[in-house]
Design a protein around this nucleic acid. Sequence first.
DNA 1: GCACCAAGAGAACGGCCATTCTCCCGAGCG
DNA 2: CGCTCGGGAGAATGGCCGTTCTCTTGGTGC
Lengths: 191, 191
Amino acid sequence: MEGQVEGEPLTRVVAVADDLFFTHGVHAVTMQRIRSEAGVPLKKLYGMFPSKDALLAACLERRDRIARSALAARAEQHDDPVARTLSVFDFLDDWFHQPGFRGCVFAGAFGEAGAAAPVVVTAVQAHKQSVRELLTGLVADVGIREADAVGAQLAVLFDGAMALATFTGDTGAARHARQAARAVLEAGLRG
Amino acid sequence: MEGQVEGEPLTRVVAVADDLFFTHGVHAVTMQRIRSEAGVPLKKLYGMFPSKDALLAACLERRDRIARSALAARAEQHDDPVARTLSVFDFLDDWFHQPGFRGCVFAGAFGEAGAAAPVVVTAVQAHKQSVRELLTGLVADVGIREADAVGAQLAVLFDGAMALATFTGDTGAARHARQAARAVLEAGLRG
DNA sequence: GCACCAAGAGAACGGCCATTCTCCCGAGCG
DNA sequence: CGCTCGGGAGAATGGCCGTTCTCTTGGTGC
């Protein structure tokens, strides 16, 4: 009631760790610090998650759920199928312009944990896969026959915008991706 | 005359380090190992580069030069401006299918070195910027008026294909990016 | 032949951090 | 009131690696 994070210890730990990882980078955040900010003894922390990597994987799964529901909610606000599809890039645009934007967690986690943490690699791949399926679903609703191919193209645009925004800080990437997505959709409708 | 890498010590060190960083990841490669494989004493190594980060930055600059000249050479093989522009994605396709493909060095370096190494961030940004300029130049040759905007869209596709290939191993990303690029160019020519 | 110098090879230092261990306190029960 | 036991806080452990330091060795000029 007086702190910032409430709820069951496990939920709280993941929320706190996610926030720290996202803000400062995985490598820069120590288990000690997570322990302090979550108010959980180290022993209990290691009782919940066998390793830092496992905790990171749990954070990534949480992010995946949150991102997908946010994307879906954004799409729900539109009736026109094309507008629904393009709303995905509006979501990116808003996200990039949020004050604390630090880039895609998945890209960062992949780079830092690297090939040494298979559990992280799996989480990243699952996320990218789920985003691609979401996009393909939206494209199918537009009435495009080759929904798989066009969905994959939108996925490339989605990740490209995130990569550019992450690496160069170019927040205009979302707008460029949106414009390209429009061209891709029109080509899909025509062909 | 009998080793694998020749040339001036500095050139050799960068080539060896680049190869190791690229193959095993920046974090996994120690200075000791670079020393061993380059056949250079540690003291001399630190005489050439004040820190590991500086050496990494030199490797990234080298990659930037190599990548740009490879892209330009590939484009030179075509006469039609549209084909020249799309050849960029053929280059990606070939690269993704090379046996030792491990993803984009710049993405990996950015994730691993992170915000802690400004010199790396700078190198990554310079590279992304130079690629974008290269693409914008190709688009301008096609005769599209809004070359800047379309070039930026192609840059999104370029980085998106690399990000997907790096994170998920989806080598088809280059093909999807190419198809999307065609749609973007057609829209640019029409509008 | 001998003293000096340069440079190479690797040992040593310092610091960081995931993970484990130990001690201590407070609550609950007899 | 005293005893035990669970759990919390943080100290120790073990290992890694960037960076620096030292010693050795081989060559050269007198």
